[in-house]
């Protein structure tokens, strides 16, 4: 069992995602919530970084946060699993510690 990393900040405003990627070990998972979901926009600098670590981490995003921000799933990096809050809760039971990169 491993760590679930939670990133809630835009990668264009804060370094939370960079810090997370620097300190997350292989096989830990990452969920993007709140402004963190902006990292998923295809062809963005942040999505390119995520693309490179997809073989190392399962990456999830909170669908209600995506929907609220008008980010179209079709314009999203592929290989990301979308979850609702029920799925988010379920995911936190599958990883034995939770690290929020505030």
């Amino acid at each position: 069992m491993s760590v679930l990393h939670i990133v809630n900040k835009s990668p264009f405003e804060r370094n939370s995602l960079d810090c997370c990627l620097r300190l997350a070990k292989a096989d830990s998972a990452i969920i993007l919530i709140e402004d963190g979901i902006y990292a998923l926009q295809k062809n963005s600098a942040a999505a390119d970084k995520l693309q490179q670590v997809l073989s190392k981490h399962r990456i999830y995003a909170l669908q209600p946060d995506l929907q609220a921000r008008g980010v179209n799933p079709e314009n999203m990096l592929e290989g990301i699993s979308l979850l609702d809050y029920d799925g988010f809760v379920q995911l936190t039971t599958e990883y034995d510690k939770l690290q929020s990169w505030l």
């Binding site: 939670i6 809630n8 936190t92 039971t93 034995d96 510690k97 939770l98 929020s100 505030l102």
Partner: peptide, 8 residues
């Protein structure tokens, strides 16, 4: 079993 932090 799990502690989760929500913040800025």
């Amino acid at each position: 079993d799990r502690l989760i932090v929500f913040g800025d």
